[in-house]
Write a protein that binds this DNA or RNA. Structure first.
Lengths: 134, 134
DNA sequence: TTGCTCCTCACGTCACGTGAGGTGGC
DNA sequence: TTGCTCCTCACGTCACGTGAGGTGGC
C-alpha cells in the first residue's frame, strides 16, 4: 500500500495514529489490511499534501469536511424534498469552488515559474545559434 | 525582508546558519542588512521550496550549482574562444532543461488535479440545473 | 520615554526516518 | 529453513516555532 500511494509504511502508521485515516483492520496475525477504497483515500491525501503543500492539520480538517459531506450525501439520497437537495448540492459546489481556487492559483504560480525558465532557455539557445553563425 | 520574501525572520536566520544563503552584513548595531540581490535570491529559494517541495539539502545543491555557473559566466565573458563559450552555454542549457522538466511535470500533475475537480463541479451544476427544471 | 523590531540562546513541535528486537506468511 | 516484510516501541532528524531575556532605532 505504501508503494501504491507513494509513501512509506511509517507514514501510513503515523497518519493512522493521528486519525487522519481510519484504523486499518488487522488480519489474523497483526498485519494491517486495506481495501481499495482506503488506498484511494490515502493516495488522495498524499497528492494534496505534495501538490498543495497542505499540513496534516489542514488535511484533517479537509477529511472531516469530506466526511460531513458524505453524511449529507446519504441524506441527499434519502430525501425527496427538492429544496433540501438543492441546499446540499449548493454546499458541495461551494466546497469544490474553494478547492478549485486554491489549485488554480497554484497552477498559475507554477506556470509563471515555467515561463521564466523557458525565457532563460530561449536566451541561451539564441546565443548558441549566434555562436554557430560565426 | 521576511515579509518581502514570504517567510519569517527565524527562517532567514536558519538558512544563513545552514549556509543556504550567505551571512548577511551587520549594520552598526547587530541588525542584519540585505541588498536587493539578497532579497531576490531568498525569494527564489522560498519559491522553489514551496512550489516544488524541495528540501533544504536539494536547495543547497542547487545554489551551489548556481554559484559554479556564475563562476563559469565570468570565464565566459573573459574568454574569446568560441569553443569554450559554446561549452559553457551548453552546460547552462542542460541545467535549465533539467529544471524545466521538473517544473513541467509538476504543472501537469496540478493540471490533472484541477481537471478532476472541474469535472466534479460540472457534475454538481448539472444536477442543480436538473433540479431547477422540475 | 514608550513601542516596536531586532538579537541570541535554547527548548518545543511537526512530520516523519531509523534502528532494535521480535513475529508472521511464502 | 531462509528471506523478506510486518509489527511495536523509542530515540533521531529536518525545518523551523516560540518564548526568555536583552539591546537598538524612530
Amino acid at each position: 500500500v505504501a508503494e501504491l500511494t507513494g509513501t512509506t509504511p511509517r507514514t501510513i502508521r503515523y497518519y493512522e495514529e493521528l486519525g487522519l485515516i481510519g484504523s486499518a483492520e488487522r488480519r489474523q496475525g497483526k498485519h494491517r489490511s486495506y481495501r481499495e477504497a482506503d488506498v484511494q483515500r490515502l493516495a488522495e491525501i498524499v497528492r494534496l499534501r505534495d501538490l498543495l503543500g497542505l499540513s496534516l492539520e489542514q488535511l484533517s480538517q479537509l477529511v472531516e469536511a469530506e466526511a460531513a459531506r458524505a453524511e449529507l450525501r446519504r441524506e441527499y439520497h434519502a430525501s425527496e424534498e427538492p429544496a433540501q437537495r438543492r441546499q446540499i448540492l449548493e454546499q458541495a459546489l461551494g466546497h469544490i469552488d474553494t478547492q478549485l481556487e486554491l489549485v488554480h492559483s497554484r497552477r498559475e504560480e507554477i506556470k509563471q515559474l515555467e515561463r521564466e525558465l523557458s525565457d532563460r532557455r530561449d536566451l541561451v539557445t539564441r546565443r548558441l545559434s549566434e555562436l554557430g553563425r560565426r
